[in-house]
Simulated scan of single mutants.
Amino acid sequence: MNSYSIERYGTAFISHLENQIKTKEPQNLYEPINYILGLGGKRLRPILTLMTADLFGGNFMDALDSAMAIEVFHNFSLVHDDIMDDAPLRRGKTTVHEKWDVNTGILSGDAMLINSYQYFESYPPEIFKKLTSLFSKTAIEVCEGQQYDVDFETRDDVTIPEYLKMIEYKTAVLVAAAMKMGAIIADATEADTEAVYEFGKNLGIAFQLQDDYLDAFGDPETFGKQVGGDIIENKKTFLFLKSLEYAEKEQREGLLHLYSIKPVDSRTKIETVKLIFEESGAVEEAKNEINTYTQKAFDALTTISIDDANKTILKQFGEDLMKRTV
């Protein structure tokens, strides 16, 4: 299958996206939408939709509208998340609510959510029904994941299973749905669409756990965000929760204290916390957990009835994703 290429999907998607971006009236509703969609990002999810449609023997061009739905929804959630987090920057550029105002961010985000559903209207009724019901289920889970995340900020009894459920809902289910949509459009069997969903979900969890790890231990040169950002924000990531579970009493108390303050000079805090993460064995556990979920993803591939060459492409994609340093 020589036509397979991430660049090819990316190019097809970008040109489809650019065709959709039009300046309409009222401008204050549509300009922010075009702005956030134009900020780039990895476009990982829409590319996965096209790739999966292709690997399951469909025409990936048929999956472009579905890929748009995923990308518009994803960006809608970012606009609203940024308001909730009062974040000044997104992908290194000013966030929508800072560039315009909070009301604009809310309303433009609402319009994006509605827009994302309109992209499914180009599909025949049977496919439309499958896509929209999967999409709605996913959208509500993303909201639940975001709420868990917000709740965790004020709770000091968050467990590892709760944390894993939060990242599954907040991040992984959208990756999983993006892939399952591609398979649905390619008319794959129920069992195959479910298996590719499992692949995407487990890979999404591994990806997020790795993101947590890289946030603390990534290379500042290649990691797209501020290294130690989660520590500065006192985010209760996997590393933090595992350290609480594993560390000696003194280190545990030290960690809890450090996570109750926001010092002016955060460098010392970051270094001390990272030391506790390493000495407690949490870093080792995080790496094990990343491997466990990556393996679960690969196990899901074994049941899929596509030829081995295409399975290898999916596996290779997973391996490339998990080898990243950004």
Rank of each mutant, 00 (worst) to 15 (best):
L209S: 08
S136Y: 02
A12C: 04
R8V: 13
G145L: 07
E250M: 10
Y246F: 14
E245H: 04
I270A: 11
F207W: 01
D101V: 01
I304Y: 02
D230G: 09
K24S: 09
Q20K: 11
A12P: 02
L78A: 01
I160K: 07
D212H: 04
C143D: 02
G10T: 13
S243C: 05
D86S: 14
E271M: 07
L134K: 05
N59M: 03
K262A: 10
R45K: 08
R45H: 03
Y148R: 13
R324V: 01
Y169N: 14
D82W: 00
M179T: 10
L37Q: 04
P88F: 06
D157R: 11
E221G: 05
N234Q: 11
F152S: 11
E233R: 15
T23V: 13
V102S: 09
M322V: 04
K225Q: 06
K137W: 08
Y9M: 13
M1V: 09
N2P: 02
Q146Y: 03
L48C: 12
T292K: 14
I261Y: 03
K137G: 08
T272Q: 15
G318R: 05
V96Q: 00
I313Y: 06
I6G: 06
Y9C: 06
G182L: 01
E253I: 06
H74Y: 02
G58T: 07
L50M: 09
F240E: 00
Y169V: 05
Y117M: 15
K311R: 14
Y293H: 15
F13W: 09
I6V: 14
D307V: 14
Y163F: 15
R91C: 10
E250F: 06
L203K: 08
S77D: 07
K315L: 07
A63V: 03
K296D: 09
D82Y: 00
F199C: 08
M51F: 05
E144S: 11
D230E: 12
T132N: 10
D320R: 15
Q118L: 11
T272A: 14
P26A: 08
G92W: 03
V102C: 04
G200I: 10
T23A: 09
K24Y: 12
F135V: 09
T268Q: 14
L78Q: 01
K24G: 02
Q20A: 11
R252Y: 04
L89N: 10
L203H: 02
T95E: 10
F60V: 08
Q20F: 08
K42I: 14
T268N: 10
L258V: 02
I185W: 00
V196P: 02
E7C: 03
L209K: 09
F13I: 12
R155G: 09
F298N: 11
T132M: 11
K315Q: 13
A300D: 03
